[in-house]
């Protein structure tokens, strides 16, 4: 069974977000970029399934300009067997990404596609579900445990009210939540070996996908700051303030 893992290049999670002064967007010039943390978790799960002998091949795919090649190399160093780079703009909408991925799914016929549940830049949380819809596959979002059972996959999902366990037929789409696993770090020999692993490139045309724009980002702004608070010096002063000043206690 092949596992396909789509990967997004995003601003490094530890870098402070700066909004352009003209409100045109977030300033990414010279910023440190990285693999989206949820994509790392998705990839780790795929690699573990391969190490368990459940999967035969892990294929990483990323969509964007030349720079996404860096994240594909990282994916190869972390255990993907080969990778596919779909050359396109960096900021495609979720639906366009899902259409491109569907075309890759048709070519590769993976048993599972494991994605991050969302990217930490656009925070959309959409691509996995859209891909499942377009392929007509079942989906398990917010996965915290994945277990293969013959021709089924059992997934524990983190839902608002607790946990839910689902069984999906294959092929299936899974999106990874935080607690699915703790991704490994790439070791130097693996980074060297990754340089020899194949990276195929494709274009939307070659995949037979016409990209269409649905959304326009008119502006990006910083949220209004909270007005500065005060320090209180005792529990009784706190209760007094909450009662008489903030009026949030009876």
């Amino acid at each position: 069974m092949k596992i396909l893992v789509p990967i997004k290049r995003t601003l490094d999670a530890y870098i402070k977000v700066r909004v352009h002064i003209d409100n045109s967007g977030v300033d990414l010039s010279n910023a440190k970029m990285a693999m989206n943390p949820f994509c790392e978790i998705a990839l780790e799960e795929a690699v573990r399934l391969k190490e368990k002998g459940v999967a035969s091949e892990v294929i990483a795919v990323s969509i964007g300009g030349d720079k996404v090649g860096d994240q594909l190399r990282t994916a190869l160093a972390l255990g993907a067997d080969r990778s596919i780079h779909i050359k396109a703009d960096d900021d495609l909408e979720s639906l366009n990404i899902a259409k491109l991925l569907k075309s890759v799914v048709e070519r590769e016929a993976p048993g599972l596609v494991i994605l991050g549940k969302q990217a930490i830049d656009s925070d959309n949380n959409q691509v996995g579900q859209m891909l499942a819809a377009l392929c007509g596959y079942p989906q398990a979002t917010f996965a915290s445990r994945v277990e293969m059972k013959d021709n089924l996959v059992e997934v524990t999902r983190e839902v608002d009210s607790g946990e839910q366990v689902l069984e999906l037929t294959l092929p299936a789409i899974i999106t990874a939540d935080l607690r699915l696993n703790e991704p490994r770090y790439a070791k130097l020999p693996d980074i060297m070996k990754a340089k020899k692993k194949p990276v195929d490139t494709l274009t939307p045309d070659e995949l037979g996908v016409t990209l269409r724009s649905h959304l326009t980002i008119e502006s990006v702004s910083e949220p209004a700051p909270r007005k500065p608070g005060i320090r209180v010096h005792s529990a009784s002063e706190l209760v007094e303030k909450l009662r008489n000043e903030a009026k949030v206690l009876p």
């Binding site: 909408e93 639906l95 925070d123 326009t216």
Partner: peptide, 30 residues
């Protein structure tokens, strides 16, 4: 069609504001 996630303000029938980058920025999207 596109999907708009986690909308916090409706500006008009085509335009919406939603947080991005974990709420560190707000995007106005048409």
């Amino acid at each position: 069609v596109a999907q708009l996630s986690e909308v916090v303000r409706i500006e008009d029938k085509d335009t919406f504001t939603r947080p991005i980058y974990a709420g560190n920025a707000l995007a106005r999207v048409r």
